[in-house]
Amino acid sequence: MNLQIEDKGTAVLMQVKEERLDAHNSGELKAQMLKLFEEGKSNLVVDLADVRFVDSSGLGALVSGFKNASSRSGSLKLAGLQLQVKSMFELTRLHRVFEIFTDPEDALASF
């Protein structure tokens, strides 16, 4: 999976550089998030601007990251959702769980 990870101080920015986040690659995202948590990070921003398609496995990986961040008194916030990706969060009611920002810079500034 093409994932760009950058420590921005208050939070880590993860940019998913893939067209799809699905059952094929969501495990890698989950593993990368776990690695960051193990390194002591607890605040993440996941930028999904390049992601055109997300399935239930992709959503599950983000829920896993959210739970792990919360259990470490941190948070996982989302940014850059395309319209159809956003509608997936609405369909599954996960838009009530995640803080969702248009711009990743705004998400980073919110920590």
Binding site: D55, S56, G60, V63, S64, K67, T92, R93
Partner: peptide, 18 residues
Amino acid sequence: DPRPPMDEHGRGIFIIHS
């Protein structure tokens, strides 16, 4: 039916039904 928000699995069939 919709899964509880914190469930990591089991949303696929609900999505197909929707």
